[in-house]
């Protein structure tokens, strides 16, 4: 099962305001790119040699921010009421 298929099962109330931003300057000389392996929703994707990030499928776990040793990720939860809404949990 692909990650997009899995995420499509969840209810998301996506906010227009972005809750996580990545400073791609920092990514350039980040060799290991830990965020790629830390994110359980594949929100970080390597395109050629740079990282692209999309917040829409974010499961709000917080892994990326802990994983990123360069401090390139500014992280918070979405505004109250927005983001993922689990039905089962």
């Amino acid at each position: 099962m692909k990650v997009e298929e899995k995420l499509a099962l969840n209810k998301f109330d996506v906010d227009k305001e972005v809750h996580i931003t990545v400073n791609e300057e920092g990514c350039r000389d980040c060799e290991l790119k830990p965020c790629l392996y830390a994110c359980p929703a594949d929100c970080f994707v390597l395109r050629e040699d740079h990282i692209t990030f999309s917040y829409e499928g974010c499961l709000e776990c917080g892994s990326c921010q802990i994983a990123c040793a360069k401090g390139a990720i500014s992280w918070t939860y979405p505004r109250g009421g927005f983001g993922v809404c689990y039905q089962y949990g």
Binding site: A8, L9, K11, F12, C85, Q87, Y88
Partner: peptide, 22 residues
């Protein structure tokens, strides 16, 4: 804003089945 997978109908009774808990 329900994902399509959570939208269900009861064909026999012609009713929408609301997803439990949402």
């Amino acid at each position: 804003d329900l994902p399509p997978a959570k939208f269900m109908v009861d064909k026999e009774r012609n009713k929408v089945i609301p997803p439990e808990g949402i």
